[in-house]
Design a protein around this nucleic acid. Sequence first.
DNA 1: ACGTTTCCATACGGATGAGTATGGTAAAGT
DNA 2: ACTTTACCATACTCATCCGTATGGAAACGT
Lengths: 230, 230
Amino acid sequence: MVKSLAGVNLYLWCNESPLSVMLNSSLCGECQDSIVAPSALKKKERSKLSAGDWEQQALVLIAEQGIRAVAVESLARRMGVTKGSFYWHFPNRDALIEQSLLRWEKHDATNLKTSLGAISDPRERLRSFFIRTSREKLTHDVYSSLCMASDHPKVEPLLERVAERRMSQIEAAFAEIGFDSAEASHRARLTYSAYLGFLQLQRQHQAPNLSSEEFEGYMAHVIATLIPEK
Amino acid sequence: MVKSLAGVNLYLWCNESPLSVMLNSSLCGECQDSIVAPSALKKKERSKLSAGDWEQQALVLIAEQGIRAVAVESLARRMGVTKGSFYWHFPNRDALIEQSLLRWEKHDATNLKTSLGAISDPRERLRSFFIRTSREKLTHDVYSSLCMASDHPKVEPLLERVAERRMSQIEAAFAEIGFDSAEASHRARLTYSAYLGFLQLQRQHQAPNLSSEEFEGYMAHVIATLIPEK
DNA sequence: ACGTTTCCATACGGATGAGTATGGTAAAGT
DNA sequence: ACTTTACCATACTCATCCGTATGGAAACGT
C-alpha cells in the first residue's frame, strides 16, 4: 500500500520526515538527480507522518490529476493511513491546499533565482528559461495543473504572483538586450504567453515530445523568432 | 425566475424553440448584433423547452463558470424548471455535455471558415485571427473555459480538433507568405501558443483589457514580431 | 511506573449531486 | 369525449466527500 507513494517526492523538496526519505526508491521516470541523498535509513521503520509529507503528496496528486483530485480520504489511502491522521495535522482541506501551494511557490521562486540568476548573458538566460521545461518535471506538472484551476480562490493569486515573478525576469533580460521599456514588456508577455500556450498544447497532447527532434526544431524557431541576434 | 436566462443565447446560435427567442431581451453586454432578429413574439407564451435550449444554456454556464458548473439541478433552476424536465430531453448529464460541445464545435468551425476564409491577403488573415478575439465573446469564453477542462474525456478530443483546424489555417497563411513547410508549421504553433497563453493570462486577470491602449500596443508588437513584412 | 502527548482508526452526521420512479397536466390526435 | 403523447414536478435512492467525535496505541517525559 506504500507502493503508490512515488519516490518522486525527494527530487524536488527537502523532507523533514524519515518516511518520505525511505520512500525514495528511485522510481522517478524523468529525473535522476535527487536533492536529498538516498541516505540508507532502516526500512520498515515506518515513522509517523509529518504535515510536510501530506503537502508533498498533495502536490504529487495535483501534478498527476489536478487540484480537484486532492480529496482527504483518497489522499489518506495513498499515504497508507485514514482521515483521522489528516485532521490531526490540518484543520481542513483548504489548509492543506494552502500550505502545499505555498511550499511549491517557495520552491519555484528560489529555483527561478538559482537557475536563471546565475547566467550573465541575457540571451542565454532566456534560452535556459525554455529549456528548463524539460527538467524539473514535477514542479512543471504542478504548474500546468494549477493553470487548469485558475478559478480556484487560492490558486489564482498564486498564478498571478508566479507569472509576475517570471515575466519580470524575462522583461529584464529583454531590457538588457536593448529593448526599450514598452517593447521589453510586450515581448516578455509574448514570450511567456508562448510558454503558457505550449503548456496548454501539452495538456491537449498536441505538443511534440520534449526529447523529440520536432521539439528541438520548434524550440530553435521560437528562440530565433523571439530572441534577436546580437 | 426567467430573468436569469441571458439574452446572450441568440447572438450566436439559431434557436428552434420560441422560448429562447422570447428571452432575447438584449441584456447582452458586449455585443449588439444578433444573428436572429428580435422577431416580436407574443410574450408570456412560455412554450415548452427544447433540447437545444438546454444545450445553449449549458454553453452559457460553461462560459461563465466552466464545465464543472453544468449540474442538472442548477441548470434546471436557471431554466425555471426542475430535473424532471431535463431527464426527458436527455438520458444523462454526459449526453447534454456532448451535444452542447458538438453544437459549439459546429458553430466555431463554420465561423472560422466564413470569417477567415474570405480574406485573401494572408497577412491580413492572420491579423484578423487575433482581432477576432475581441468579438464573439461567448464563443470565446466557452473555448477559454474548455481549455481549463482539457482532462475531461469529451473535451480533450474536441480541443484537439479545434486546435488542429485553427492551426492548419494559420499554417497555410504562413505558407502563403513564403515560409517553407517546416517553418510555417513551427510559426503556426508559436502563434497559436501565444493566443492560448493570452487566454491563460486572461483567466489570471493578467492580460490587458481588450479595449485598452496597452492591448493595442501589445497586439501591434505581436503582429510585428510574428508576421514578417512584405 | 505512570501520566501526557502524539498520531491514527472507527464511526458517525451532513451536504451535494446524479439518476430513477412515478404521478400530474395540458395539448394534440381521433 | 377519450386516449395518447409531450413535458414537467415531487419524492425518493445512492454515491462521494468534508468534517466531527471519540477512543486506542505507541512514544515520551519525569
